[in-house]
Design a protein around this nucleic acid. Structure first.
Lengths: 194, 194, 194, 194
DNA sequence: CATGAATGAGCCTTCATTCAT
DNA sequence: AATGAATGAAGGCTCATTCAT
C-alpha cells in the first residue's frame, strides 16, 4: 500500500520510527507500536522488528540524552577540586534533562530495562552519582543520612514535582532548578548565625 | 431477579463498592468499574450509578484520609506558637499520608476532580499550606523562593520518590520522612561552622 | 450497528452462537470467536462473554452428542445379558457419533476440558467403557491385552482413519463400522479350527 | 554482504535446513519457515528457495523414512512363502515408523503432496500394500471386507490412537504394536472353543 | 545464490459504557 | 434502584510471503 521499500532504507526506517516516537513522547502521547507504524507510514511488522516492545523504543528515544548525562558524569568524576560543586553540577544536569525530556523519567524510574545499553547507561549514572556523593560526604559537605540509593528516586521525585506543578514548558527548567535548589540548600533557613 | 430493593440496600452497596475499591487500591490494582462490580457481587450498572467514573470512586476512597489531613490543617492553623513547627508538622502528616495510602497521590496530583467534596478538601489543604508557609516565611524561617504553589508538587514529588525507591511497604514512611527531612533541612550542611 | 438487543434475548444469542458454531464445525472451519461473532451478527464481546475460549464453544457444540452417548452407556450397563454385545453396541455408537459429528473427536482427544460438564461426560463414558470391557473380559469374550485406557484412543483412531479415508459424508458411517468391525472381529481370519 | 557463494554452500545450507527441521519435528514444534531460517542461521529467502512451502520441507524430512519403508515393501513383495506374514511384517514396520517419526503421519495422511518424490514413494507403499493384501486375501488369511484403500487410513488411525493414548515416547512403539495386534488379530476371541 | 527488511492481513483479547428489563 | 447482557472500538501480536540488494 505504501511506496516500495528498499533494503538500504532499513536505517532510514529506523530513523523515521525513532523520530515519530520522539514526537509522540514530546506530546505526551503514550507510545503504541501500531500507532507509531501508522504515523511513520510503515507496516506494523517493521516497527516490531526494530523495536519488539514500546519500552525498547522509548529507551532508544531516551538514549542520546542518557549518553550525554553519562558523559557529563564521567567529566564530573574527573574534577577533583570541589566535591560539592561536582555533585551539584551533576544533579543539576540530571534534573534539567529529566524535566526537559519526557522520555527520561519513565526510563529512569523503570525497575527493568529493555535494552542492554540502557542498563549500562543507568549503571554508569548511578555509579557516577555514588562516587560524587561519597566524595561530598567525605568532604563534610553533605548530610550523612542521604544514601546513594536515594539519588535516583530524589531526581525522579523532582521531575515528577515539576510535572505536577505544570505550567509552560519553558518554565519547567526553572521550576526544576528551584526544586533542586530547595532540596540541596534546604528549605529552612538556618535558625541563627549558628 | 431479586426482591424489591430498599434504600438501606443502596447504602450497603455503596459501602461494599468502596470497600472493594479500597482493597484494590491497596493492592495496586487499577480501579476498573466492571472489575469492582464483579468483586462486590453487584451489577455493573449499580456501580456506575454510585460512581460514574473510576475517578469518582477513587476520590471517594481517598476522601477519609483527605478529611483527616484537612482537619489536621485546621488545627495547625490554630497553633500560633511556632510557625516553622506548624508547617513542618503539616507537611510531615501530608507525606506520611501520601506514602501510606495509594489512593492519595493520584487524587492530589490530578488537575481536575470528579467530586465537589474533593475540590473542597484540596482547596482547604492548599489554603492551610499557604497560610502556614506564609507565616513561616514572615517569621524568617523559610527561604523566600518557595511559593505556596510549590507545596503540593513537592509533596507529590516526595511520594513519587518513595515509590521509585521501592522497598518494603513498612519502610515507606521512614523513607518519606527522610526525603522530607532532606527537603526541609537541606541536603547541604551549612558551609560555615554554623 | 446491529439491531438493538434485549436482555431476554441472551438465550437467543447463546443459541445463535452455538448454531453458527455448529455450522462451522460441520464445514470443517476452525472455530474462531471473532469469526463466529461476525457470522452471528453479534459483538465480539458477546461471544466472549458466553464462551471465553473456542474450546468452551466447541465443547458446548459437542455436548448434546456426548450426552446421548453417555445415556446410551448407562443403558448398556443395565443390560447384563450379553457382555460382548453390550460392549460392541457401545463402541459402535461411539464410532458412529465420532464419525458423524466433527465436534466430537477434538473434544474426546483433548487432554484438558474447558467445561466441567464435558469432564463429567467424558468420565461417564470412560467409566461405562471400562465396566463393559471388564465384563466382556471376565466373560472371556475379549483379549486380555486390551486395557480400558485403550478404548478412547482406539475410537479416536478409527475416527481419524475414517477422516483419512475421505469420501462422501454419507459413507463415513459405513467406513467407521467397517473399521470397527475389523478391530473387533480381527483382521485375520482364524487360521483353522485352531 | 558475504563473499560470492558457492554450490557447495547450497548443499550445506540444504543440509542445515533439513537438520533444523528434523529437530523441530521431533520436538513437536510446527514447522515455520521463518523460524527454521533463524535457527539455521540463514536468511528466510534461502529457506524459501530450497523449500517453497513448509510441506515441501516436511516431506523432505520424512523422505528417508519413507524410502526405508518403500524398500522394505519391495523386499516383502519378493517373499512368496507366507502371504500373511509378509503383510503383517509390512504393516508392523509401517506402524513403527509412523509412531516413531512425527514427520510421517502428516505426510502420509495428506491428500496432496508437495514433492514428486513423495508421491512416488507413497504410490510405491500403496502398491506394495495392495499386492500384499491381495495375496493374503487370496490365501484366505484375511477378511474379504478390507480393501487396499483402507490400509493407509488404518495405519494412520493407529498412529493417531497412539498419540491420543499419550505416555512416554519410549512406550509409543509398544502401544503401536499392541494396537496393530488388536487390529490384526481381532479384539474378540473367537466365540467357539475354535 | 543468499539475504533479511518490509509488509499487512488476520487473529486474539480487553474494557468502558449503555440500556432494556 | 439494580441488573448484567451487549457492544465494538481499540490495541496487541504473529507469520507467510515478497523482493530489492
Amino acid at each position: 500500500m505504501t511506496t516500495t521499500p528498499r533494503r538500504k532504507d532499513a536505517a532510514r526506517n529506523w530513523d523515521r520510527i525513532v523520530a515519530v516516537a520522539r514526537e509522540l513522547v514530546d506530546q505526551g502521547t503514550p507510545l503504541q507500536l501500531n500507532d507509531v507504524a501508522r504515523r511513520a507510514g510503515l507496516g506494523v511488522g517493521t516497527v516490531y522488528r526494530h523495536f519488539p516492545t514500546p519500552e525498547a523504543l522509548l529507551e532508544t528515544v531516551a538514549a542520546p540524552c542518557l549518553e550525554d548525562l553519562a558523559a557529563h558524569g564521567e567529566r564530573a568524576l574527573a574534577d577533583d577540586t570541589d566535591p560539592w560543586r561536582a555533585l551539584e553540577g551533576f544533579l543539576t544536569r540530571t534534573v534539567e534533562a529529566q524535566v526537559t525530556d519526557a522520555a527520561l523519567s519513565p526510563v529512569t524510574a523503570a525497575p527493568a530495562d529493555a535494552l542492554p545499553r540502557t542498563t549500562e547507561l543507568k549503571a554508569s549514572l548511578r555509579s557516577a552519582g555514588t562516587v560524587l556523593l561519597d566524595r561530598a560526604r567525605e568532604a563534610g559537605a553533605v548530610r550523612p543520612d542521604v544514601a546513594a540509593a536515594d539519588l535516583v528516586p530524589l531526581m525522579c521525585g523532582i521531575a515528577h514535582a515539576v510535572g505536577v506543578h505544570g505550567g509552560a514548558p519553558g518554565d519547567r527548567i526553572d521550576t526544576g532548578r528551584r526544586y533542586l535548589a530547595a532540596l540541596l540548600g534546604g528549605l529552612r533557613v538556618p535558625p541563627r548565625g549558628a
